[in-house]
């Protein structure tokens, strides 16, 4: 309940944040603090310094850029869930944000923090993978973009360097998309979360992508399942047949007291079916 001591610096700009991160030993960024502070309260995390990026101007905007949405790293889950631009351009993303934690958590937690933290039970990663999002980050060497598929490396581990700051996320819009989650009854994190995108051409599925979090240490895509659905109608039978391939996406399912890896894999199949059906319905 009582974090150990640390030094605190409030960065006025991304450049300053990068500079502080590079120069201070064992420093960590804090944005909403809703992953970091809980860990610090249990003293599971004991950084020597925090660099607060929460007040850096210009990092919380949400805007449409062509068919894509550009979401500032500091956009809270509530801001994403409530954004008309997101609800219109990419309903699944609003749905994902609204499924995170609770009202209070959504008022503080940020998309940048969630992605950087890369919790196996976090909700955003599946959506990022399914949508093919790109993360923009600034480090000592300047700005770069990282495809979601390269971003999530392992449990609580991303492709970010220690002194890189996520500034925004570019998310291609997708009307035919859905995110469904099996919520942990205690923690509220995703036991399994499935994000699905379906693009229709005529009566047939022309494109499909599936992202899944909760089952393994990092979020994964279910490519075999997605491929199996393409090239024919999004019928219940074809969706079920496609979902049967979901297991191929998991190397080592994780388990906890509530749900074993085996059961998570089972749930992933069920939620994939449901998410695909909903996405296809939305694709029209």
């Amino acid at each position: 309940m009582f974090p150990s001591q640390f030094d605190y610096h409030r960065a006025a700009s991304v450049a300053e944040a990068v500079e502080l991160l590079s120069s201070l030993p064992d420093a960590k960024l804090v944005a909403g603090g809703h992953s970091l502070i809980p860990a610090m309260k249990l003293r599971a995390a004991q950084p020597a310094a925090l660099v607060d990026i929460g007040r850096i101007p210009g990092l919380s905007g949400i805007s449409a850029d062509g068919d894509s949405l550009v979401i500032g790293a500091l956009a809270t889950h509530a801001a994403v869930a409530d954004s008309a631009a997101v609800q219109g351009g990419c309903p699944m993303l609003a749905e994902t944000a609204a499924a995170i934690g609770d009202i209070q958590v959504r008022n503080r937690g940020t998309i940048g923090g969630s992605l950087a933290h890369a919790d196996p039970g976090a909700d955003y990663p599946a959506a990022m993978l399914a949508l093919g999002a790109e993360v923009t980050a600034v480090g000592a060497g300047g700005e770069r973009t990282i495809a979601a598929s390269d971003f999530f490396v392992d449990i609580l581990t991303t492709a970010l360097a220690d002194n890189e700051v996520i500034t925004s996320v570019r998310v291609p819009g997708a009307a035919g998309s859905a995110y469904l989650k099996h919520r942990h009854p205690a923690s509220s994190y995703a036991v399994v979360g499935v994000a699905a995108c379906v693009g229709m051409d005529g009566g047939n599925v022309a494109s499909c992508s599936i992202g899944i979090n909760g089952v393994t240490g990092k979020a994964v895509t279910a490519d075999a399942a997605a491929a199996a659905l393409c090239g024919g109608p999004a019928s219940a039978d074809r969706i079920a047949a496609a979902a049967a391939y979901v297991g191929e996406a998991f190397d080592e399912p994780l388990g906890d007291l509530y749900a074993s890896g085996e059961f998570r894999a089972h749930l992933a199949g069920v939620y994939t079916k449901r998410a695909l059906a909903l996405a296809a319905e939305r694709a029209g």
């Binding site: 249990l42 009854p185 205690a186 923690s187 906890d256 007291l257 509530y258």
Partner: peptide
């Protein structure tokens, strides 16, 4: 104790 915090011990909501 595997359910020692409210992250694991599921009190009804």
């Amino acid at each position: 104790l595997l359910s020692g915090t409210l992250l694991e011990y599921a009190v009804p909501r």
